[in-house]
Amino acid sequence: MSNKPKVSGFMNYLRKERIPTIFCAGCGNGTVINTFFNAMEMAELSLDNISMVSGIGCSSRIPGYIKCDSLHTTHGRPIAFATGVKLGNPDMDVVVFTGDGDAAAIGGNHLIHAARRNLDLTVICVNNSIYGMTGGQISPTSPKGSFASTTPYGALEAPFDLAKLVSGAGATYVSRWTTVHPLPLSNAIKKGLQNKGFSFIEVISQCPTYFGRKNRMRSAVEMMKYMKTHSVVKKKAKKMSEEELEGKIILGDFVNRNWPEFSEMLCEQVNEKSEKGLIDAIKSAYKTDL
């Protein structure tokens, strides 16, 4: 395999004193960490220039294990904080780790607005269809009929299709993969990191502890096998009927387009209006002579 990941070096990217992680055995978060490092290397980016922002939930704990500047914020709001980080220093590569509850329920508004602005952020949403940190409650992406501690008789609500939602809101790169597809997922994250604009990578992941246990899939392996057999790449999905696609996870790039990016336009405007330009504002909190 030509693009074989050099996983053994990934340990150097971690805050070693903090591992093992708090994640349950078989949780998909660790696989997402590996694919991120693989993508970062492929995109030739460095943790020296990456700021990670996350909200609240299991996947939002990811940046805490990575040796980079990391902001572990409030529930649902990481994209708002990330907006400030990016505009405060547009030279930084800003990555957001979030989950389905964080990004799609409490933080849904920030998600669609950052996508609308096409702000240069790479948002990696680990979607495990459940609230893991609080003990297995239903989420806005849980499939209809699925069980959770707050839907003991089955969920009645229709789930969000996050990739479609964010595409519609104006993101310029949107892709969906699962934890069973680490190499295409790495490639999607790489494309997201390289895209100058709002990138959204939805990772369908397994929560064996809560989603699995409540929905008759007892192990991470069983859940991953389910994801593998129930996913269809976009190209193939196009040829399938709605009935055939029922219950299937559609994978691939949903959007990949070149639209003007917000921070770049804002910088241009500031440079036009001011003598000093935005570059003078960078790290200006440390200056007394302005």
């Binding site: 074989k4 996983v7 990934f10 093992p20 994640f23 696989t31 694919t35 693989n38 190499l183 790495s186």
Partner: peptide
């Protein structure tokens, strides 16, 4: 075959394939 699939899938970075 040293494809490293196990290592990249391993959620706990516990595997090193040399």
């Amino acid at each position: 075959k040293k494809c490293n699939l196990c290592a990249i899938l391993c959620p706990d970075l516990a595997i090193t394939v040399e």
